[in-house]
Write a protein that binds this DNA or RNA. Structure first.
Length: 212
DNA sequence: GCTACGATATGCT
DNA sequence: GCATATCGTAGCA
């Protein structure tokens, strides 16, 4: 049984964007490639709260072709390019309510060989512990910007998921000098999971990786 | 056209 | 921790 677009959309409308960012932890991302399917669990996500959020691309209703997908309905994929990296966002809320969740880190499950082929690293945990890194490891193309989840190669699986033992909260990364928005607790991650960005070695739960 | 700059990654100190 | 690589896009002329 596969998750449908309608189910994903319902899920992405089921609370505030901050709540959804939190609920996304442990959910499974699937990417269909020519050679097979690659899957990974979300371990870190940040919420961006629309026009009032100084750190969001839709701050003050800013709207251009570049961030247009932000204004689309829940379940739309928004890919932002920063320098040479791509960043993956899932749109939450209704049409014209530009909110979304930035996927910051994942834990690979199936297709690990393909992940490592796409992105060679010395340390395994370096593979997907950052927003640009995970896009490279997955090999997700920018063309998916503006398309919908579960209708193309990229889908969100709500049936097979893990449950975080402890969810931690912090201010968002890379958001300096933005008043209260710099420290607003809108970043959520699985405590102890080694794939979370900026995770300190001694905080890693090497037994369960932070899962229940 | 030209310029400034960003939700980063990496490598060096 | 801090500099810097390096690229698409917006904003303006």
């Amino acid at each position: 049984m596969q998750t449908t677009f309608n189910e994903v959309q319902k899920f992405l409308l089921s609370g505030t964007t901050a709540e959804i960012a939190q609920k996304l932890l442990g959910k499974r991302l699937c990417f269909q490639t020519k050679t097979g399917v690659m899957t990974a669990f979300i371990v870190e996500a940040e919420a961006y709260i629309g026009p009032k959020d100084q750190a969001a691309h839709a701050f003050q209703g800013h709207r251009t072709p570049k961030n247009e997908p932000l204004y689309h309905e829940a379940g739309t994929i928004y890919i932002y390019q920063m320098r040479t990296q791509l960043l993956l966002n899932l749109i939450t809320q209704k049409e014209n309510d530009p909110q979304g969740v930035l996927i910051r880190a994942i834990q690979p499950e199936k297709g690990l060989t393909q992940f490592q082929k796409n992105r060679e690293v010395h340390q395994l945990f370096e593979l997907t512990n950052g927003p640009g890194k995970l896009m490279q490891a997955f090999g997700i193309p920018k063309i998916l910007k503006g398309s919908r989840l579960n209708e193309g190669p990229l889908s969100l699986d709500l049936q097979n998921f893990k449950t975080p033992a402890v969810i931690k909260v912090s201010g968002r990364i890379g958001v300096p000098n933005k008043g209260i928005w710099t420290n607003e607790p809108l970043r959520y991650f699985v405590a102890g999971n080694p794939y979370v960005s900026r995770m300190r070695k001694r905080d890693i739960d090497s037994k369960n990786y932070g899962w229940q």
